[in-house]
């Protein structure tokens, strides 16, 4: 396939759709940004795409809980379509609010039952924070990162509810066993560290996870905010690189789709 097609799903309060589109296009994909109402009125629309992306934002104001209302819309209306999508080896990405949606819809860490097994709750600091974090890639299970050979990525987080917790330790153990923990917050040396390196108090410093197939990835940090060389906060110190670390993720995913479709 020459240009994989990406559907960016938006609704009331989505606000990172445009830069996510830019990142995918830069990586060589064709992108449509589609409102949830349009998708719900024509569910087979999904068939035209190989990647579904849920961008960051505050869908429905994060009222009740971050991502909850959109999660319900997906869970109660699109279960079959999503299952088919995954069966066809296609990819789903949730960034920040999109990750919260995937977790609350029960698509992560395990999508089979559509039951919520984990959560992203209030940061330990109990406030929204925008800061840059170092992420260790701890597994190559996800098709969004499996060919990236950089051990640590530098990306920003911007959220108030990003503390990852599982329903019980069995869920966590299963995730670890299946190598579903993809990103962990670390310090600049790549070592495990506390706040502010781990900005929210996530268990095991978890920043991003995939499902058992490796096709669904959810992450709190924003890869689309470190795509261009000038996104990096210290570029005036270290000079301009060819692209930002986050671009690797889009590149990797688009390459997977090119190779497999």
């Amino acid at each position: 396939m020459i240009s994989p097609k990406v559907l960016i799903l938006r609704t009331a309060g989505t606000n990172c759709d445009n830069e996510t589109k830019y990142a995918f296009e830069k990586a060589g994909a064709k992108v449509d940004v589609v409102h949830i109402n349009a998708l719900l009125s024509k569910k087979n629309l999904l068939e035209n795409y190989q990647l579904l992306a849920l961008p960051g934002g505050f869908t429905y104001g994060d009222d009740v809980a971050a991502g909850k209302i959109l999660a319900n819309q997906i869970k109660y209306n699109l279960e079959e379509e999503i299952k088919t999508f995954i069966d066809k080896k296609k990819l789903i990405l949730g960034i920040c609010n999109g990750f919260q949606v995937l977790v609350r819809a029960g698509l992560l860490p395990s999508f089979e039952s559509f039951q919520q097994e984990a959560t992203l709750t209030h940061n330990d600091s109990n406030k929204f924070e925008d800061r840059w974090v170092h992420l260790k890639i701890c597994s190559d299970k996800s098709f969004f990162i499996n060919k990236i050979n950089v051990p640590v990525l530098y990306l920003p987080v911007a959220h108030g509810e990003g503390k990852f917790l599982t329903k019980n330790s069995a869920v966590l153990e299963k995730m670890i066993k299946n190598r579903q923990v993809i990103f962990q917050y670390v310090d600049e040396k790549g070592e495990k560290a506390g706040y502010p390196f781990n900005p929210n108090g996530s268990i095991l410093n978890i920043a991003g996870v995939c499902d058992q197939t490796g096709q669904i990835l959810g992450m709190m940090p924003h890869p689309e905010r470190n795509v261009d060389p000038m996104h990096q906060p210290c570029w005036t110190r270290i000079g301009l690189k060819e692209f930002g670390d986050g671009f690797l993720i889009f590149q990797n995913a688009v390459q997977y789709l090119k190779d497999n479709f």
Binding site: N15, C16, E19, E224, R225, M230, H231, P233
Partner: peptide, 23 residues
């Protein structure tokens, strides 16, 4: 104060409000 504001959404940030080796 500054950290509580999202100062990078829309992806156009070039010079951020907090700068330096430790941002």
């Amino acid at each position: 104060v500054i950290r509580q504001y999202d100062h990078e959404v829309q992806g156009g940030s070039v010079l951020k409000p907090l700068q330096g080796v430790q941002n």
